[in-house]
Structures are given as C-alpha cells and as structure tokens.
C-alpha cells in the first residue's frame, strides 16, 4: 500500500510547527499505525533527517502513552481503539493521512507529536486517591461492596489517562478524565470519607490547569478508547453540587 502521511513537525516547545508530507510506498496492511511511523522513521534516520517524535510504550492499548489525532479524530477512525491498536488496514491504498498532536492549551507540544500531559497527573495529585497509608488497611472482607457498585467503579477506573478526551473536546476540557476518577473513588465505601474534598479539589486543580469547561458535547466519550460514559460527568456534577452545598 502507498500512503501519504502529513505530519505535524515541530522542533521544540517554543518553535513554530508545520505539516510536512511524507510518502510511505511500502506500507503493509497488517502494520499497526505506530509501526507505520517506525518504518518512516527508519527511513528518515538513514536519510539523515530527524525522525518523527511520538509517545508510545506498551503498544497494546493499556498504558495510555500513545495518542495522535488522525484525520481530525483522536486515536483515529476506529471506535474504542488506541493509536497503537489501530492498523493500517483501516486505510486504503493512496490515502492521505493527517497526523497531528493533541491540541489543548494545557497540553503543550514538546516535539512533533509529543505533548506534555502532566496536567492530568496534577489533577490526580490534588485528591484522586484514597488516603490509606501502607499497613493501615483493614481486612479486605470487612467492607463488602455491592457488585453493581464495584462494576461501575471498575468501568470508570479503566481510564488510561491518554488525554484523547481533551484532544477531542472542542473546548479542550478534561471533564471526562476528572469525572472518571471521581466516579471511581466516590462510589466506593472506601472513598466515602474524602468524598466532598476529593471532588472539590479535583475540579479546582482541573480549572487551574487551563482546561476548558464542559458543554456536554460528548466528543470526549466518543473518542475515549475505554468508553468512559458521559454519565460519569453527571456523577461529577452531582458530587460537586453535593459537596458545594455542604451535604455529607
């Protein structure tokens, strides 16, 4: 397969960037999308050009490192799929593919397709945890958790922190990411003591990072490779109102 890749090239955070076109004449349909970039990079290296920088690690859709916007879609055209799990067979011979970094003022471009997502870590640091110092835990069966609650907590806990929600949101909002953590921890009995402070602190940290506000467009959940649902955002709002009104 012959593909043309138009890739955002930017030498550093303060440098100007632009889209540059590259031909890949020997793309194999069985390649993953990142392997396609690997092949291009091998060639660029031998030609003495700077290879394309992009984040990636596990390449099995769970670490959350990878993520680029492909033809205007975060993680590309396949639903519930990270960039590393997308394969070249999703495209056709002769296609021109636009590849761009996540765009959000909170995600500065470091180089080419790599962005700084540390804002998401700072949101978690503000309260996305249960304070249970090592050794202080009670016996695991001392607090049964109803299965539906455990299952819903799990669904929200599957967030991989890739940032696709922010990239897809026309407002650059991190509501889905933040709400997944609130919905995960606030629904569990173990998370109850810090329920109010957690949601207030997370939202405050989210706002401080410069992420946009939520207008419930739902682009986030459509782009999310783990399918975190929109009702997590409703949960966050519910918890936030509850905490703001001082209800225990």
């Amino acid at each position: 397969m012959k593909l043309t890749l138009r890739i955002w090239r930017q030498a550093g955070p303060a440098e100007p960037g632009r889209m540059v076109a590259y031909e890949v004449p020997d793309a194999n349909p069985d390649m993953s999308f990142l392997e396609l970039l690997d092949v291009l990079n091998e060639r660029l290296t031998l030609e003495g050009e700077d290879p394309v920088t992009f984040d990636h690690d596990c390449r099995e859709g769970i670490c959350g490192s990878c993520g680029v916007v492909i033809n205007g879609q975060a993680h590309g055209p396949r639903a519930l799929t990270t960039t590393c799990q997308l394969h070249v067979r999703s495209f056709s011979d002769g296609d021109v593919i636009d590849i761009e970094p996540w765009r959000s003022v909170a995600f500065g471009v470091l180089k080419d397709l790599m962005v700084d997502r540390s804002g998401l870590d700072r949101i978690i640091q503000a309260g996305g945890y249960i304070s249970a110092p090592t050794g202080s835990a009670p016996e695991a069966h001392s607090t049964p958790v109803p299965k539906p609650i455990a299952d819903s907590a799990f669904d929200n806990a599957t967030c991989i922190g890739c940032g696709a929600c922010v990239a897809a949101c026309p407002n650059g909002s991190a509501m889905l990411f933040t709400s997944a953590k609130v919905a995960h921890l606030n629904s569990l009995p173990q998370g109850a003591p810090e329920r109010a402070s957690r949601v207030l602190n997370l939202v405050e940290a989210m706002d401080a990072e410069g992420f946009g506000g939520c207008t419930n467009t739902g682009e986030c959940t459509n782009a999310c490779p783990k399918g975190i649902p929109m009702d997590s955002i409703a949960t966050l709002n519910r918890e936030y109102l509850r905490a703001s009104l001082g209800r225990k």
Binding site: W8, M19, V69, N71, G72, Q73, D98, E100, R103, S104, V105, A106, A168, C169, P170, N171, G172, S173, G210, F211, G212, G213, T215, N216, T217, G218, E219, N222, A223
Partner: peptide, 29 residues
C-alpha cells in the same frame, strides 16, 4: 465566560477538520 474559557483552552485548531460526532443541536449551541 464559558465560551471565552473554552476558546482559550483550545487556541490551535486541527488542520484536518474535526469530524464532530455530536449532533447538530450540540454543535450550534
């Protein structure tokens, strides 16, 4: 205020037009 914040949060548009998956109603709020 929300619009200002949102526009500020996403100053750079994608060069490939984003295919919105949300409905028209959402799009033109």
């Amino acid at each position: 205020q929300l619009s200002r914040r949102d526009l500020k949060a996403r100053p750079t548009k994608y060069s490939h037009h984003q295919r919105a998956k949300a409905g028209y109603a959402t799009h033109i709020m």
